[in-house]
């Protein structure tokens, strides 16, 4: 079973690699269409800025590749936001795989949200063996509203999507690779999908 991590210009992916190594999972890091298409599952990480990330993907036709994937795909943080239609960050047209939009936090709290917050109203097999209100690690200044594709929520000034899913595309706003045992269980759940 081949797991491929999409390699692009959005920040540091070392922690995702190391998390998979800790779980004993082999992976390939790639930005090549063929390798990504032949994966059994794909992890689409990302810490960075939406418009420059989309630009990088488009220049290499990776946007088309990601849209065409039929195997399980896990978008993490910016990766999740890029699966959506549109992001207020850099006024960016995203991949449009999950029909919802990404907004900027506009409240009295500190932005970006950095730290451990809960995941609530869990409603998907990616959360098998995860208790309600478990803590996971978030770092983000933009968020996805609650919508028809929401599979977990969280609260920071307002309720919004901690995770979304459409068919075989999952997106998590938090960083499972940095979320202790809870994050490891979520990664294991995803890695069991086919």
């Amino acid at each position: 079973m081949k797991t491929v991590i999409i390699q692009y210009n959005a920040g540091n992916i070392t922690s995702v690699k190391i998390a998979l190594e800790r779980l004993g999972v082999s992976y390939t890091l790639s930005n090549e269409a063929e390798i990504i298409q032949q994966a059994d599952r794909v992890i689409f990480p990302g810490v960075g800025e939406a418009s420059s990330a989309m630009k990088y993907l488009q220049e290499r036709n990776l946007d088309l590749v990601i849209r065409s994937l039929k195997q399980p795909v896990l978008g993490i943080c910016l990766g999740m936001q890029l699966l959506c239609r549109y992001s207020e960050e850099g006024n960016t047209q995203c991949l449009g795989i999950i029909p919802t939009d990404v907004k900027k936090f506009n409240n009295q709290l500190k932005v970006p949200q950095i730290g451990w917050n809960t995941i609530n109203t869990l409603n998907d097999s990616i959360f098998n063996n995860i208790p309600e209100n478990a803590f996971v690690y978030y770092v983000h200044g933009y968020y996805v509203q609650k919508n028809d594709y929401t599979i977990a929520t969280t609260t920071y000034g307002l309720d919004y999507s901690a995770a979304i899913r459409k068919e075989k595309f999952w997106g998590v706003q938090f960083h499972p690779e940095k979320s202790a045992q809870i994050g490891e269980q979520i990664l294991k759940n995803f890695l069991s999908f086919s």
């Binding site: 190391i18 800790r22 940095k178 994050g183 490891e184």
Partner: peptide
Amino acid sequence: VASCVNIP
């Protein structure tokens, strides 16, 4: 250290 910790 990074190899054995699962927190930031």
